[in-house]
Design a binder for these strands. Structure first.
Lengths: 130, 130
DNA sequence: TCTTGAGCTTCCAGTGACTGGAAACCCCAT
DNA sequence: ATGGGGTTTCCAGTCACTGGAAGCTCAAGA
């Protein structure tokens, strides 16, 4: 398979696939003309990567997950620990965003949003120091 | 004021303050020795920026917000529109993270996390194609 | 006075995970 | 032979910093 076909099947942009090769996540073969020659296993890996990325795992996490996936002697506890850690970070991110959202929503509500210059949003931003 | 004092008072790292000067968000004066000479108004701007950044506004948004703040003829509707737009994006981000979180939490729950290699998390990641 | 150490300066490079674009090569159909 | 689409590499840019190196300045202590 050429990169275009793999891109379509995996749902990843060709650019991203080349990048994944650059950083060593996949190692497709090459045709005589220099084109990348993807095996079904490469496509499989890319799909795995795409799914893991869509769950928010970092590239380095993905590297570890792929290694675990390919390691028959893995312990599911290793995978679970990684996922649990990631889940914790997602929760932290959500909490941060929710706090932002609260404050911002209050400010937006408080702003009358008309032609006058008076604005509680700017007032808040300016109020932190003096 | 030198940069160290301003950093402490604004809560921003000195590196960040220099960066903000680089990109034209502030324009502190200079002492004869080359040190930056911050006026109270510079500190005020930095605090404004820090607060806006902490609410998740992009640097470009901050630029606009500062301009609006300094523009006596602004209309609060302009500020509100910007904040509203930002709020919408935060909501989208939260929704995305929550979806991730849901899926991931289910997978973590399903994984027994012991010494055996069998793992629903890896199974999910690998299941997208094929 | 000399030295030390902290604080300041600039500049360059790296982060994460791509993404855009340029120039050139390859293949297939007309 | 030509045209168009697919592919290649390489370089640069994104966003908002952050780290580090090399060198200058300043205030305090011996």
């Amino acid at each position: 398979m050429n990169i275009g076909e793999v891109a379509e099947k995996s749902g990843l942009p060709a650019k991203t696939i080349r990048y994944y090769e650059d950083i060593g996540l996949i190692r497709p073969l090459r045709h005589d003309n220099g084109y990348r020659a993807f095996r079904p296993s490469d496509l499989h890996k890319l799909a795995f990567l795409g799914r893991a990325r869509s769950l928010g795992f970092s590239i380095e996490d993905c590297r570890v997950l792929m290694a675990l996936y390919e390691d028959e002697t893995r312990e599911s506890a290793q995978v679970k620990a990684l996922a649990q850690e990631h889940l914790t970070q997602i929760d932290a991110k959500i909490a941060g965003l929710r706090a932002m959202r609260e404050t911002l929503a209050d400010l937006v509500d408080a702003c009358h949003g008309d032609a006058r210059p008076d604005c509680p949003i700017l007032k808040d931003l300016a109020s932190v120091v003096k």
